[in-house]
Design a protein around this nucleic acid. Sequence first.
DNA 1: GATGAATGAGTATTCATTCAT
DNA 2: TATGAATGAATACTCATTCAT
Lengths: 200, 200, 200, 200
Amino acid sequence: MSGRGEATRQQLLDAAEGVFAERGYARATTKEIAKAAGVSEGTIYRHFADKQQLFQAVFIDRNAANSAAITQLPDLAGKKTVRENLLFLIHAIEDVEANVAPLQAAMSSDAELAAALFSSAGPARAEMPGVAPLEPLARYLEAEQKLGRVRADVDVARAAFALFAIPFAAVMTGRMARAAGVPGDVDMVGAVDVVLKGIE
Amino acid sequence: MSGRGEATRQQLLDAAEGVFAERGYARATTKEIAKAAGVSEGTIYRHFADKQQLFQAVFIDRNAANSAAITQLPDLAGKKTVRENLLFLIHAIEDVEANVAPLQAAMSSDAELAAALFSSAGPARAEMPGVAPLEPLARYLEAEQKLGRVRADVDVARAAFALFAIPFAAVMTGRMARAAGVPGDVDMVGAVDVVLKGIE
Amino acid sequence: MSGRGEATRQQLLDAAEGVFAERGYARATTKEIAKAAGVSEGTIYRHFADKQQLFQAVFIDRNAANSAAITQLPDLAGKKTVRENLLFLIHAIEDVEANVAPLQAAMSSDAELAAALFSSAGPARAEMPGVAPLEPLARYLEAEQKLGRVRADVDVARAAFALFAIPFAAVMTGRMARAAGVPGDVDMVGAVDVVLKGIE
Amino acid sequence: MSGRGEATRQQLLDAAEGVFAERGYARATTKEIAKAAGVSEGTIYRHFADKQQLFQAVFIDRNAANSAAITQLPDLAGKKTVRENLLFLIHAIEDVEANVAPLQAAMSSDAELAAALFSSAGPARAEMPGVAPLEPLARYLEAEQKLGRVRADVDVARAAFALFAIPFAAVMTGRMARAAGVPGDVDMVGAVDVVLKGIE
DNA sequence: GATGAATGAGTATTCATTCAT
DNA sequence: TATGAATGAATACTCATTCAT
C-alpha cells in the first residue's frame, strides 16, 4: 500500500515467477532473481524470510489470480451451447494449468518443498492449486444438468474429472514434449468431443 | 563374468530411483545415493559418467520395464467386455505412470535436465516416457472398432487421449495432494465410465 | 569507494602469490589461499572468476611492478663504467626473476595453465614475463655501442641474451638446488666478467 | 633381468615420462599413465610404491642416460677448433636440458616433491640433474686452457657457467614461449660467439 | 603378476543467507 | 530501505591407493 517497498516486492514476485518457471525451484538462484528484478540480492530478504517463502508467495499470488478467473465460470450455464461453454472452460483451465504447471512441477518433484509449503495451513483439496478448477467445473455441469442440457444419469463429479484431465494432461505432456524437443500438440477439442458424446 | 560390477550397478540404479523420486533431481545428492546403495561415492563414477547419466540410466531402465508391459495389451481386443478391458488398461497405465511420475516430475521441473536427456537422440513422441501408453491404447480402440464393439464414428486417437488423461491426471494430482497432506483419491472408474458412454 | 572490496582483493593477491610460489599451482588449494588471506573460501570467487584467473591476476600484478623497474634502465648508458652498469642491470634482472620464477615454475610445469593464460591475448614475446628484461638490456648495449664503450662488431641482441642468461640460470638453478637441499650459490659477477671481455 | 615383470616396468617408465612431460607432475594421473603403458592402474603399484616413486624412477633413469652422454665430452679438447667443440657441447647440453626440463619444472614448482625426492640421499651439486653438465664443461675448458687454446686468465668455472647458462635459458624460455603460443627461437650460436670472444 | 572394482579423502565451486554501511 | 561484500556449509566430481579375484 506504500510506495517504494511495495513496488520492489512486486518486482520481486514478477521476476521470481519467471525464473522459477524457467529454471525450476532448485535451479533458480537468488542471484538471478535479484538481477531479473533489478535489485540487489540482499533486498530479497527484506521482503521474504527466505527463498521458500518467496516461492510460496509467488505460488499463492499466481493461484489467487487464476482461481478468481475460473470460479465465476459456472454462470455460463444455459447460455450458448454446452459444447461452446465446455470448450471455453477447457481452454480456461488450460491457461490456469499452464500458469501453475511450472510451479507445480517444482513442488511435486520436491517432497520437502511441498510439505513445507502446506505444513501450516493444510488447504482444502478444492483450494489446492492445480486441482482447484475441478469444483467450478462440476458445479457448471450440475447447473446444466438441472437445465436438462446434460443427461440426468451423469455423475457430475466423475464427468468433471474426465474433462479436467484433458487440459491437465495436455499441458503436462506438452511441457515434457517441449522440454524433450518434440512437437507435443494435442487435439484437446477432439478429446472433449468424445467425452461430450457420453454426457449430452 | 558380470559379477561384482553388474551387481553394484543395479544397486546404484535402485538406490538412485528411490532418492530421485523422493528428493527430486536437484535435491538428490550423490552422497545420499551412494549411501542408499551401500557403496562409496566414488563408485558412482565408475559406473556412470555423472549424475545426469545416472538419472538417465534410471529413467530408461524403469521405462523399458513399464512399456514392455503395456505394448502387448492391444491383443485383448475382442475378449471380455470393452469396459473390462479398458479398466484393465487404465489401471495398467496408472501403474506405469505411478512408476515414472516421480522421475517425470524431477525432469519436468528442470528444463535443462530434460533437454540434456533427450538432446542427442531425440526420441519419437510415441517413445517418450509418460506418453508412451497413448499409442497402444489407440491401437486397442482401433481393433475394437473393427470388431464393431466401438462406434465407427469415434476418432480413436482423440478417444485414446481422453482415456489416457484420466489415469495420468489421477496419478499426478494424487502425488501433489499427498505432498500437500491432503487425501487425493480419485474415482478413475467413474470417470472412465463417462467416456465409455461416448464410445460404445 | 574502493574500501572493503579492494582491500580484500589485495589480501587475496598477496596470499595467493605466497601459496602458489610455495606449493605450485596444482598443489595450492583455494582453502589454503583463503586461510592465508584471512577470508572465507567463497570470498575468492567474489573477486576472481576461478582459481586460474586468480593466478593470472597474481602473475600480471607481480610482473607489472617488476618490468616497470627494468624498463627505464637503458638511461644508464654513458654514466659510470659499463661494467658497473651491467652488474647493476644483472642484479636487477636477478631480482625480477627471483620474483617471477616461482610463478613461472608453477606455469611451466603445467602446459595447459600457460596456454590458458596467454590464449586470449597472445602477448608479444617482449612482453612475456620472464623474458621481458631482454629488450631493455639490448637497448642499453646499443646505446653504449653508439657511445663507443661497446665494440662495434658486437651483435647486441646476442650479447643481451648471453648476459640475460646468467641471472636467469642462476635464479632457476638456485631454486632447484635449494629445493634439493644443496647449496646452490653461483658467482654471477665472475660469469658476467667473462662475457664482458668479449664485449668491451 | 626377467621377462614379463621387467618389460612392464620399462613400459611404465616410458609412458610415465611422456605423461609427466606433457601434463606436469600434478596433472599427470595414474590412470592416464597406466593407459599409455597399456596396463591396468593397479599394476603401477606392483612396480612402484607410489606416484612419487614412479616420478623419481623416471627422473633418475632419464638423467643417467643423459649425463652418460655428457660426461665423456671433455675428451674433445685439442681436436677440431674450440668454437666447434663448444658449439657441439652447447647443443649436447641443450638436448639434455630439453629432456630434463619438464621433469625439472614439475619439481621446481613443487617444493614438497623436490624435497621428498632428494630427502634420503642429498646428492652432490654436481650430480644434481639440470646442473650436471656444468662440471664436464669446466673440465673441458680447463683442458683447452692447458693446451693454450683458451686464455690463461679465464676463470674456467665462471666461464663454464656463462656458457652453460645459454642453452639452459634457451630451453627454459623456449618452453615458456611455446606454452604461451609465441615463437621462442633463440640464436644460441650467436650468444656463444659473444662469450667466445672473451675466452679465446 | 595382473586386473579392475571399490574406496574415501580431498578439491574447486556454488549459493542461500547475514550484516555492516 | 537498499546495498553488496562476506560467509560457510554443501555439492559434484577426481584420483592415488587398496584388495579380492
